[in-house]
Simulated scan of single mutants.
Amino acid sequence: MPGIKADQQSRWCNQTHDKVVTLKFLMMQKTTLPKVFVIGHHKIATRSIHQLFKVDGYKSIHWKGGRIAETMLKNMRMSQPLLKGIESACVYSDMEYLHDDGEFFYGHRLFPILDLQYPGSIFIFNTRNLDSWIKSQLAHKSKKSGLYVRRIRKGLKTIYPGRKIKNRDVIKMWRRTWQQHEDEVNRYFSGKSNLLRVNIESVESKKQLISSLRTFGYELTSDDLPYVGATPKKRKISSRHGKSAD
């Protein structure tokens, strides 16, 4: 700029940039944006959807060690709004918990209550091939707690005492739960316009999801779901086939 020294110009540019970033952040936090609830099961790109919003500055919470689901259950027991204590976020995903003792709870199954308590919200129903999802479930484990399916077996044993629970019993439950949840989602959202469906194994379906989210006011810069939550080898293979993370 004429008449302005280089160091002054640099400071002015930095200050202007900071103001723009701050303004954009504040605009993103406006309560006019609808909340987004990811109501598909975990291991279906829930972290990828979470990251899609997070990289563009939107407040998104994912799993939190089961604390999202625990908060929802506690609030429901106390006749409080489900999100009391965590209502400041825009996006919620992987709303389940599974304790080491086998107790489990699926908060995403409460989507009708969320729709009632937070009118105008958007619901993302993320799906994938059922058999590949079951394989992913069987392989899922954590360093601290071990195999996911083992803890589910433990939980089922408390429900059916005296009965020997095997993996095939868990798989049978997963298949039944999958179909029941899909039927309930289809029935509840029939005639409604706030459900977005995405098949994470379809490139076009993922693009359509992001395009639809933009119409609701979310300024998303990516045209695909980011890939997170897998080993480098699996990430490399999946990227070639246009797949998203579990």
Rank of each mutant, 00 (worst) to 15 (best):
M78I: 11
S10W: 05
Y106K: 09
K166L: 11
S142P: 06
T16W: 03
S48N: 03
H241T: 13
V170W: 07
G40F: 00
S142R: 15
H17W: 13
K243G: 02
A139H: 13
P34C: 04
K84A: 12
Q29N: 11
T71N: 06
T22R: 14
L82V: 01
E70D: 10
L116T: 02
K164A: 15
E219K: 14
V198G: 02
N199I: 01
D131E: 15
H140P: 01
Q9W: 07
L195S: 05
S202I: 08
L116G: 02
H17K: 14
T16G: 00
E70H: 07
C13R: 14
K54E: 04
A139E: 13
R176G: 08
V21F: 08
T31Q: 11
H42A: 13
Y106V: 15
L156T: 02
D18V: 10
F189N: 00
P81Q: 07
V55E: 14
D183G: 08
H42I: 00
S211R: 14
K35M: 06
T16P: 01
L156R: 10
N126K: 07
N194G: 04
H140L: 15
V21T: 09
M78F: 13
G85W: 00
T16M: 08
Q80F: 11
F25V: 11
S136K: 04
I200Q: 10
A245C: 12
G146I: 06
A6R: 13
V149K: 03
I61C: 09
M76C: 09
S136R: 04
R47V: 06
M95C: 08
V185W: 03
T127D: 06
D131Q: 12
I113F: 12
T177H: 14
I4N: 06
K135N: 15
V38M: 03
G155S: 06
G191P: 00
K207M: 13
P81C: 10
K5Y: 09
K19M: 12
C13K: 13
S211V: 12
H99Q: 07
D101M: 03
M76Y: 08
Q180D: 06
H17D: 13
V149F: 03
K172H: 13
T231N: 07
S142H: 10
S136A: 07
L225P: 02
N194K: 00
G40S: 01
Q208W: 03
V21A: 14
